[in-house]
């Protein structure tokens, strides 16, 4: 009895263990095996030979890979800031009491509920040049056929993808900002108003400093999500024309299935660092801001 009680009284020290155990089995163990593969020429079938860092060298010499790095970063540079800016503006807009607020909030969040792959297919149907919904709409309203292929033009297509992505996930960013806004005590704003601060000044000096935590969450999850973009591109352009809108995640998948398993895990590690660096920088920066304020 004594012993049992003693054990129970110690148990709380090990509460992280069940989660960590499960995580080790289904994530860390395969991960370590995968990292090991990145140093081999494993093709998914025959015996793997150790090749050192050849896969990494190969990666930086590959045209298509470098283009994919460019596409991925370009996408993230477009998508992550836009998601945050629009998410914040949406949140400011909805941070008032009005009839139907929760309905509006639900509606704006709704697109994020749906799998990006299926959403991508729906958008493809809407946006498809020549025969999509928007095209038909423009044609029947203006009477003129629009002869411009926005998904077939590589420099244009990437921005179409960015817009669709921002459209789908802006609700998610908004909700987190909204939560942050609602936690700001009203007295602060009232005090600001008494001091004669304008709306913009209040946002700059009262709202923003109080929002560091939600900003941190949004910035970091959006960086991670944007740099790992996959399904929406598959549905909208399939990476084309050629490889011009292919992202690194798609490249990794295609290489992994295309007999280059070892190589693809090496690329996945590179992608990990491409994600890690901006996340680390923004984390440090925002923490510093947090302390300053």
């Amino acid at each position: 009895m004594e012993l049992k009680n003693k054990i129970i009284s110690k148990l709380h020290n090990f509460m992280i263990l069940p989660a960590f155990l499960l995580f080790s089995i289904f994530f860390i163990y395969p991960l370590l095996k995968g990292i090991g593969l990145s140093l081999t020429d494993y093709d998914g079938m025959t015996k793997a030979n150790f090749v050192g860092f050849d896969n990494f060298i190969e990666f930086f010499k590959d045209h298509r890979a470098m283009n994919d790095v460019k596409t991925t970063i370009l996408f993230a540079l477009g998508s992550a800031p836009l998601l945050n800016i629009f998410g914040f503006l949406y949140a400011l807009l909805l941070d008032r009491k009005f009839v139907g607020k929760s309905i509006i909030r639900t509606i704006i969040y709704l697109p994020a509920v749906i799998s990006p792959l299926i959403m991508g297919y729906i958008w493809y149907f809407i946006l498809q040049p020549k025969r999509g919904f928007i095209y038909s709409l423009i044609e029947s309203v203006s009477g003129n056929a629009l002869d411009f292929n926005w998904l077939g033009n590589s420099s244009m297509a990437i921005w179409v993808i960015v817009i669709v992505n921002v459209w789908q996930f802006v609700g998610m960013t908004m909700v987190i900002y909204l939560a942050g806004l609602q936690a700001i005590p009203e007295e602060l704003h009232e005090a600001g108003m008494i001091d004669g601060a304008s709306y913009l000044q209040r946002i700059r000096y009262i709202t923003l400093p109080m929002m560091i935590q939600p900003i941190k969450i949004n910035v970091i999850t959006n960086i991670i999500g944007s740099l790992a973009v996959f399904e929406i591109i598959i549905a909208l352009t399939d990476g084309g024309p050629g490889y011009s809108t292919e992202s690194l995640s798609i490249y990794i998948m295609r290489k992994c299935y295309g007999s280059f398993t070892g190589y693809s895990t090496a690329v996945a590690i590179v992608l990990f660092f491409i994600v890690l660096i901006p996340v680390y920088i923004s984390f440090k920066y925002l923490n510093k801001k947090n302390v300053e304020m």
Binding site: L31, S38, I224, C256, A268, V275, V279
Partner: peptide, 24 residues
Amino acid sequence: IMFLIMLGCMMIPGIINTVPLYTL
């Protein structure tokens, strides 16, 4: 440490796991 390891793993592209996880 356990918490940081798990958080760090959030940034790892899942595809790296496919073949080993399938074997498992």
